[in-house]
Design a protein around this nucleic acid. Sequence first.
DNA 1: GTAACCTATGTTGACTTTCAACGTAGCCCG
DNA 2: CGGGCTACGTTGAAAGTCAACATAGGTTAC
Lengths: 114, 114
Amino acid sequence: MIPRALASATLKPIVLSLLAEGESYGYEIIQRILDLSDGQMQWTTGTLYPFLHSLENEGLVEAYWQAVENAPRRKYYRLTLSGRHALLQEKQQWINVNRILMKLWGPSPELAWT
Amino acid sequence: MIPRALASATLKPIVLSLLAEGESYGYEIIQRILDLSDGQMQWTTGTLYPFLHSLENEGLVEAYWQAVENAPRRKYYRLTLSGRHALLQEKQQWINVNRILMKLWGPSPELAWT
DNA sequence: GTAACCTATGTTGACTTTCAACGTAGCCCG
DNA sequence: CGGGCTACGTTGAAAGTCAACATAGGTTAC
């Protein structure tokens, strides 16, 4: 299992990246992260729902309700332009942090970027 | 500036890595991280000192007081065997998280692992 | 028809982490 | 002797996390 601090640090980039691929909603995002991480990242609704609300308050995403046949209604989230900028920034910050760790660990074949 | 969550996620691996290179003490560790990150990671004593105490409680480091000429005494920290194992684990977890992000971002030349 | 489970959104209360601010103290410089 | 640096530490307020709870519609199986 990935430790809380590390999962926490990647929540924003991951959610923004998923939404960059297309609109989605809370419940699905939780499942997709669980799937993407082979079960190593298990976000709960108590974390993700408030987090999505904060993204909305920051203007990084827009939300709308969608009625669905034979299922509860869903609250879909869509990236805004501002959200796309934020995603680029997140990627850049990841690169910066990586550079710092590489200063300590050195280039390692087992860490190859693939 | 690196966001809090990301800095937080790297504190443990960075401190363990620094101590793997040799013994050090709180005040110096703060300076070395500041230097290593080109000023992007500014840990305060309110965070680092309690964190070092928790590493000690976990048995990852050992501490001893050292008197110094013309300066206040220092509390030096040294990695234990258990701490070395923890460092390896931290590296592995970083690799895992990286793999997850790469699934989303794909191999990118600008992210080359050097 | 009802129990069990899944989808889907949300809140709450307890816990942990973080940080600016403060406190203590020794040293050096002008 | 005031200012700044080194060096350890704590505190109180704010923020983040999560198990648990609440609500509600749907399906499956018996």
